[in-house]
Simulated scan of single mutants.
Amino acid sequence: GLDDIIVGPICDPEAVAAMMAAGVGARIEIGIGNRVAMPRIGISKDPLRLEGVVRVLGDGEYTISGPTYTGMRCFMGRAAVLDTGRARVLVTELPHEPWDLAVFTSVGLDPCACRYLILKSRMYCRPVFEPIARAVVECASRGVTSSDYELFRFEKLARPIYPLQDDILWRPEAVRL
């Protein structure tokens, strides 16, 4: 039941190419994301099927205004925005962290003006986006950057090791520097 959502950035060069070929204003049905299988952690998904209108096509370049990396020039690869009616989804050719509002404003999206902002980020978004948020809801996803260590088979580690083993108590005084 959510609406007025901005989502991104989602890396999917195939989806960007399809939106570029369709052009601004085209209504398309497209699969987005989930194109990289991760068999070592048992993940293989199909792209999310979305229908919408291609609203923006861009070069994916912007300059960070701050508070971190201020002045740095960034390149997300070509970028496209799909408007599903309830959400505007920013899709990029290259993987990219949302380091700045300009990730979105560079393609005509204003994260300060939407009701919900869904970021694909682990932590780099915090200095920029937490100050404009009324609340933050963290979601754990399955993937190679997950904080759920049970997803991974650690086979070549000397044991015991904290926090991979539940029965191990970490004691700072035991650390030798």
Rank of each mutant, 00 (worst) to 15 (best):
G58L: 07
D46R: 13
C114K: 02
R35C: 04
A158T: 12
R73T: 08
P9I: 04
D166Y: 05
K120G: 01
Y62Q: 05
I43K: 07
I64E: 15
T92S: 10
V91P: 01
R171W: 07
G108D: 09
A15D: 12
V175A: 10
R27P: 03
V89H: 00
V36A: 08
G25R: 06
Y116M: 03
M19E: 05
V107G: 05
R55F: 01
I32R: 01
Y124K: 10
A113H: 10
M123Y: 12
L151Q: 15
L82F: 09
I64M: 15
C11T: 10
E97L: 08
P95A: 02
V89A: 06
G33M: 12
V56S: 02
E51V: 13
W170M: 13
R171I: 11
V36C: 01
P131H: 04
V175G: 00
G66T: 12
D100N: 01
D167T: 09
E61G: 14
G71W: 02
A174T: 10
V36P: 01
D148S: 06
A140C: 12
L48W: 09
R86E: 07
W99C: 13
I32L: 06
L151F: 13
G31V: 02
L164P: 02
L57W: 07
E138Y: 07
V16R: 02
S106P: 07
P172K: 11
M38K: 12
P172H: 06
R49M: 14
G1E: 13
S121N: 11
V81D: 07
F154Y: 14
E61N: 14
L94S: 13
V91R: 13
L169M: 08
V81C: 09
G77F: 00
C114I: 06
A133L: 08
G71K: 07
R27H: 13
E29C: 03
A87G: 09
R78Y: 03
